[in-house]
């Protein structure tokens, strides 16, 4: 069981308090009703599934209940950092 730092609770908490919520930084188009089939495909179906550094959404569902973002290494499962929902993708990662 991993430890995950919740950026709202400001401490590490056991993984079972959390739920994974898919890839991060996939914004819902504001004009979604009028986007093309290709744009919808990209938005809804296509995911990077990177080997290595991944950006994910998690929810501290059995804690503060907030959604937040995390940077994780998909090889080692290790969390590199977490940050609040809505914050931009970090430019620099600690220790990377």
């Amino acid at each position: 069981m991993l430890l995950i730092r919740c950026p709202y609770c400001e401490e590490e908490r056991p993984e079972i308090e959390f739920r994974h919520a898919g890839e991060a930084h996939v914004a819902r188009p504001t004009d979604i009703a009028s986007i093309s089939d290709e744009e919808f495909e990209t938005f809804f179906f296509i995911r990077a599934n990177t080997r290595g550094t991944v950006y994910e959404r998690w929810r501290h569902v059995h804690g503060c209940a907030r959604f937040f973002n995390a940077v994780r290494d998909s090889m080692s499962d290790r969390f590199i950092m977490t940050y609040k929902a809505g914050d931009p993708k970090p430019k620099k990662l600690p220790g990377v």
Partner: peptide, 13 residues
Amino acid sequence: MNHMEDYLQTEFP
């Protein structure tokens, strides 16, 4: 509830 919170917190905050 999770679905609604998700949209509220991340798409329509």
